[in-house]
């Protein structure tokens, strides 16, 4: 055990860079001014055993194209559309447009030193989705409707990036409010030494997200707690495109999810 800790510290002390391009949450950093980022997420939600399925088996598939734009060094915007194939609806497969999302991020603070930075940003999310896929879960990003705002803090030292997000969500269809928190860790595995833009970067991530769900009215404020743990890996290719894989593990009774994300920056 002691050896393991020693090896761990040797690893992190040797290293000079790190990563914060989280797969399931946003870092406090913004995209460059004037740049456009296009991404496509394919996500599979494993609904086996959920009520309402024909033979108890089924997978919902969500396809989410997004376009982000860096308006200034302090403001970025994103629009996402969602197309879904939902086994909980008749005549499966049934690909259709299921919703959209707006996201904006504002830089509040940025303090940089060589290979080190501390950043703080605020964000606003607004979304509308037609169908829900996980009946007993709330997630404004993929299946619910409402408004969410909050703060993101990111600290980057050497090859490690740690990010904390806290937000308040108002879910219009459910008449519930959510206090959302997430903790994300990113670590750059490869390359050991940067030589050119053509080197493939390999990052590993571990993200933990909690929802404290609150009723809208007194006296029973507290309603439910849910959490998601999401390990992931990422390849950065030619310094301008990304390929991400992540598996979201949710607590009992809530389906797991596997997602693949492709991202490309247009300067």
């Amino acid at each position: 055990m002691k050896n393991l800790i020693l090896i761990f510290f040797l690893l992190i002390s040797n290293i000079t860079f790190s990563q914060e391009l989280y797969i399931n949450s946003e870092p406090a950093s913004l995209i460059p001014k004037g740049s456009k980022v296009v991404s496509l997420v394919n996500s599979n939600i494993f609904l086996n055993g959920v009520d309402g399925l024909d033979n108890g088996e089924g997978t919902a598939t969500l396809l989410t194209p997004s376009l982000s734009y860096g308006i200034s060094k302090r403001l970025m915007l994103r629009v996402s559309l969602q197309f879904a194939n939902n086994p909980l609806v008749d005549y499966y497969p049934n690909w259709r447009f299921n919703g959209f999302k707006f996201y904006s991020k504002q830089r509040i603070l940025s303090s940089d030193r060589p290979k080190y930075h501390t950043r703080l940003s605020s964000f606003i999310t607004g979304s509308y989705h037609n169908d829900k896929f996980m009946k007993n879960n709330l997630d404004i990003d993929i299946q619910d409707s409402g408004l969410q705002f909050g703060l993101i803090g990111t600290q980057l030292v050497n090859k490690f990036a740690i990010s904390i997000t806290s937000g308040l969500g108002f879910y219009t269809k459910e008449d519930l409010n959510v206090f959302m928190n997430s903790f994300s860790l990113g670590y750059l595995v490869l390359p050991r030494k940067y030589k050119s833009y053509k080197q493939t970067n390999f990052n590993v991530y571990l993200e933990y997200k909690t929802n404290t769900i609150l009723n809208n009215s007194f006296p029973d404020r507290y309603y439910k707690f849910s959490s998601t743990i999401a390990p992931g890996i990422q390849f950065i290719l030619f310094s301008r495109s990304r390929l991400d894989f992540s598996y979201k593990i949710r607590k009992a009774n809530t389906p797991d999810e596997f997602l693949v994300k492709l991202t490309y920056i247009i300067y």
Binding site: L21, S110, Y197, I236, I265, Y267
Partner: peptide, 11 residues
């Protein structure tokens, strides 16, 4: 300052 990845340098 603050550059941490090839993607940032490229930007």
């Amino acid at each position: 300052n603050g550059l941490t990845c090839a993607m940032c340098s490229f930007s």
